[in-house]
Write a protein that binds this DNA or RNA. Structure first.
Lengths: 234, 234
DNA sequence: CATAGTGTATGCTAAAAAACATAATTATAA
DNA sequence: TTATAATTATGTTTTTTAGCATACACTATG
C-alpha cells in the first residue's frame, strides 16, 4: 500500500479518461491526495463477503473476479473486472456488508478511494452520480439476465456462455483467436455453474467438435458462431 | 388511464416523503400534471422485454411481478413489487431496452411518470438521485444473492426460499400465518426455478411434513423456522 | 532428482430434476 | 346448469448433472 504521488494524473488522464473528464480541477487535486495504489498477487483476496465496504476499487492492471461462495465449497463468479473498471461500491451504496468477494486472477495493480470521499465528490458533481446510476443499472440488467441463463440453460449452453463472457471481457491475443485469460478449470466451472469435472468434460467435447482447441489453460476459439448457437439453443 | 388530481401526496412512499416535503410548490404542480393513473387487470402486462422504457411505474395497490421469459416457455420471476414501490426505471438508466417484463398478479392500481421528467427532477434534487442509487444497489445485491440460491440449492431449499420471499414481500393475513398472496403453482415454480410439477410435488411434501397447509392457492405457514432451516441446509 | 501436491482428464455410479402420462379437481363460459 | 378448459395432483420414466474413483500429467520444493 503506497501513497500515490505524481504520476497519478497521467495514468488517470489516459486510462480513466471518461470519469476524470467530468471532474473539476479542485476535485482532481483532492482525489490525488486520497488515492492509494495497491499491488495484489495472483489469487489474493481484495475484499470478502460480510466485510464492511470502505473503498471504491479501481482496477488499473490485471484481472479481477467478483464471486460468491455457495454451499459445499462451490463458488459462483458473478462478474469479471478488467482495466479500467470500478467495483466495490455497491454494498456501500446499499448500506450493507458485501454480499460477494473480490480476488485478483493474476498479479494486479489497483487504486482505492475511500467511499465517504467518493460520496462527497458525488454530492458536488451530479455527473458522477449519473455515472454510478448507469453502472449499477447495467450491472443489474446483466445480473438479471445471468439468472435466467444459469438456471435454464444446460451445461453446454452455460459453458458456451462462459467462453463468450471471457471473449467479451478480456478479448483475444494478437492471433485473434486465443483467449487473453488463462484461468483454472475450477474458475471456468465457477463461471458457468457446474462442477469442475463437468467443465473439463464439456471442454473436451467442444475440442472434439472442433469448436475450440485447448493447450493447458490456453484456449483458442475456432468457431465463435457455433458457440453463440450453442448458447442460444442446445 | 386517468389524470391524477389530489391524493398524490398521500401516496408518496415513506422513502420519498422527505423528498416530497422539500419540493417546491412549482415542482409539486409539475409532478401532479405529469402523473397518470392506470388500472391493470389480473395477469395484464405492464411492459414487455425488449420494449423501450419510457415510464417510471409506481405500484399503488395490488401486486406486480417482474419476470423474464426463458427457453421452452419457462419464466423466471426476478422481483416482486408491493405498494408503494417503484419499478421500470433500470433499463432507462442503463440506456437499453427492458431485459424483463412486468405484469400484475391481481387487479392493481399504478401511477406513471415519464422517465425524462423523472430525470429532470433528479438533476434538480440530488436526494432523488441517492434514492435511485440506493434502490439499484439493493436490487443488485439481491440479484447476485439470488443467482447463488437458485443455482446451488436443491428443490426443497429453493421452494422454501420462495415461500420466505413471499412472506417478506406480502406478509401474512390477520391470522399471522396465511400468506397474503394467492399465486398459481406455475408462478410459484417460476419464482423458485423448477417445473410446475415439482413445485406441486414439493409443496405436497411440505404439507406432509406439517411445515405448511394448503387450501387451493391459500398457503398457511405452520413452521417458519423450519422453512429457514430448509433454505439454509437441505 | 525424487516426491508430494495440485491440476487435468475420463469413466462409472448415484442422485436430482425434468419430462411425460394420466387423473382429479376447480374455474370459466356458453 | 353443463360443458370445456385450466389448474392441481401424483405416479413413472428418462435425462441431466453431481459425486466419486482413478490415472496421468505438471510443478514446486526439499
Amino acid at each position: 500500500m503506497v501513497k500515490f504521488k505524481s504520476a497519478l494524473e497521467k495514468v488517470i488522464s489516459e486510462d480513466l479518461a471518461d470519469i476524470w473528464a467530468i471532474l473539476e480541477e479542485d476535485q482532481k487535486r483532492r482525489i490525488i491526495d486520497a488515492f492509494e495504489l495497491h499491488e495484489f498477487k495472483k489469487n489474493q483476496l481484495i475484499y470478502a463477503e460480510n466485510e464492511t465496504p470502505e473503498y471504491l476499487w479501481i482496477l488499473l492492471k490485471g484481472k479481477v473476479k467478483i464471486y460468491k461462495d455457495g454451499m459445499g465449497g462451490r463458488a459462483q463468479i458473478l462478474r469479471l473486472i478488467r482495466p479500467v473498471q470500478y467495483f466495490g461500491y455497491r454494498a456501500y451504496f446499499a448500506n450493507e456488508p458485501y454480499v460477494s468477494s473480490a480476488a485478483a486472477f493474476e498479479p494486479s495493480t489497483l487504486g482505492s478511494l475511500p467511499m465517504h470521499f467518493v460520496k462527497e465528490l458525488m454530492n458536488e458533481n451530479s455527473k458522477l452520480m449519473w455515472f454510478f446510476i448507469h453502472e449499477l443499472s447495467r450491472n443489474l440488467g446483466g445480473s438479471d439476465t445471468k439468472i435466467v441463463s444459469l438456471t435454464q440453460k444446460h451445461i453446454r449452453g452455460r459453458l458456451a456462455d462462459a467462453l463468450l463472457v471471457l471473449i467479451e471481457n478480456y478479448g483475444y491475443e494478437d492471433d485473434d483467436s486465443t483467449l487473453r485469460i488463462y484461468m483454472a478449470r475450477e474458475d471456468l466451472a465457477s463461471l458457468s455453474n457446474m462442477t469442475t469435472s463437468n467443465a473439463i468434460r464439456t471442454l473436451s467435447l467442444f475440442v472434439a467438435e472442433k469448436i475450440i482447441t485447448v493447450d493447458g489453460r490456453r484456449i483458442r476459439i475456432l468457431n465463435e458462431p457455433m458457440l453463440r448457437k450453442i448458447s442460444k439453443f442446445g
